[in-house]
Design a binder for these strands. Structure first.
Lengths: 186, 186
DNA sequence: ACCTGAACACCGTTCAAGT
DNA sequence: ACCTGAACACCGTTCAAGT
């Protein structure tokens, strides 16, 4: 990449991080370009879609979560490990308000710039769930897709201001339900 | 209301029902006015906000749900009654895609045209929950606000195409969790 | 009373013209 | 190669002018 292009790319990303943090994932891209001091076409050149921009903003977080899942995959207490990771995954999606809807859409759209990251996240969760299930510590009647759906729903809930006060409690209820049905025979 | 105004009101509502059914709660109001054959100002006169239009579209459904809750309030099996009503409530919100987000926002906004209906819905659910709890058939550590949050999350989930295949199963898991902890001593 | 539609201030997206 | 910004086709909302 040419030096001036690199500079613009970085500048757009930095400003986008600010704007999207404040206004959410549906912030005006025009506004981002304006504040970054670049032409609208420059933003579109580097980030052809809103998903591409969000993917770039969240890339590090996705990687960190997947890596952490890998580290935890052999944990001695896969039940608490799973729940802890779920909490972290949900916290990640809340970095940018409204991001979860784009992630969910991306999971079934292979053309989306967010697709790969979301699949990685889903897979990571599925592995932790599977580990807990093998130890009899999580209910057997669900899989990675169900877990992804639950994460999404909880992330959305925590993103709705009127529901925020209930988010933690609802999380606990659902976490308990996931671990429910484990036969727990040490 | 003058006869011509009444006619416009009905026409707007009828067209809005079609358009919002097809395009969701964030459909273009301009488009509705155009298809209804009225000026944009006429639509705004009758429905000053998007919430007002949605409230009018959903009014009958809200009433029906609240009334049904009243009828079921003295049911002999308050656990299955509660779950059945939850299913109906979620189905109602799905009449118009994207409606649930507006409902959630309205619950804490007394100025919203949707506020009263949403509060009524929440209260109706709270009563059914309370009834089940008194019989020891539902977990005691939740209230009407938690139930409203769960309904909202499940309604949102069922509104995301990639998650639809998991919606029923996730509903069952959560329904079981709500009834969990009931001591169930007949 | 009620209706109309132009006017205003925004979008997202594309693409010819520049360097 | 890369950047710019006008152009196009849309929004939501308001409000003067009409009947």
């Amino acid at each position: 990449m040419r030096a001036d292009a690199r500079k613009n790319y970085d500048q757009i990303l930095a400003i986008a991080r600010e704007v999207v943090t404040q206004q959410g994932a549906d912030a005006s891209l025009r506004d981002v370009a304006r504040k970054a001091g670049v032409g609208l076409g420059t933003l579109y050149r580097h980030f052809p879609t809103r998903e591409a921009l969000l993917a770039a903003l969240l890339a590090a977080s996705f990687d960190a979560l997947a890596q952490r899942a890998g580290e935890l995959a052999t944990s001695a207490s896969p039940d608490t490990t799973l729940i802890t990771w779920l909490r972290e995954a949900i916290a990640m999606t809340q970095t940018y308000s409204g991001a979860i809807a784009l992630m969910v859409a991306a999971i079934s759209d292979e053309g989306s710039a967010l697709h790969a990251s979301c699949v990685t996240l889903k897979t990571a969760g599925a592995e932790l769930l599977s580990h807990a299930q093998k130890e009899g510590l999580a209910r057997a009647d669900m899989d990675g897709n169900d877990l992804f759906a639950l994460i999404s729903a909880l992330a959305w809930l925590a993103d709705q201001p009127p529901l925020v006060p209930r988010a933690d409690h609802v999380f606990d209820i659902i976490a308990e339900a996931i671990l429910q049905g484990g036969t727990a025979a040490p």
